[in-house]
Computed example of a mutant assay.
Amino acid sequence: MAKVLLFGRLADIAGWRERQVESPFLSALRSRLSDDDPRLGEALAASGVQVAVDQMIVRGDTALNAGAEVAFLPPMSGG
């Protein structure tokens, strides 16, 4: 089971910040979250959203080990 964390406006859209989700791959996890909440799925697919698996930014699909922590990070702004 993966521990899924949402930050910033992603958590606001979903209405939750942390949840346990069963998924063997990141792509399947994204699909499951999108199926459960299409608004969240759209937000996760937006440009600039980054994903960290066990505190390491990843690009593309990756296998999720039991107990993995998957954090979805909204686009950063600053100056």
Results as ranks from 00 to 15, higher is better:
M1A: 12
A2Y: 00
K3T: 12
K3M: 06
K3H: 09
K3E: 11
V4M: 03
L6M: 00
L6C: 01
A11K: 11
A11Y: 06
G15T: 01
W16Y: 15
R17S: 11
E18A: 08
R19P: 02
Q20L: 14
V21H: 00
F25T: 13
F25C: 10
F25G: 06
S27Q: 12
L29A: 07
L29V: 03
R30D: 04
R30P: 01
S31D: 14
S31Q: 11
L33V: 08
S34T: 15
D36M: 08
R39E: 14
G41K: 11
E42L: 08
E42K: 15
E42F: 02
A43R: 11
A43M: 05
L44C: 05
L44G: 06
L44F: 05
A45Q: 09
A45L: 05
S47N: 09
V49P: 05
V51L: 03
V51N: 01
A52R: 14
V53Q: 13
D54S: 08
Q55E: 13
Q55W: 08
M56E: 14
M56S: 14
M56G: 04
I57R: 10
R59S: 13
G60W: 12
G60R: 14
D61L: 13
D61E: 07
A63I: 09
A63R: 10
L64Y: 09
N65G: 15
N65H: 15
A66M: 04
E69C: 02
E69I: 03
F72N: 10
P75G: 14
P75N: 12
S77V: 08
G78D: 10
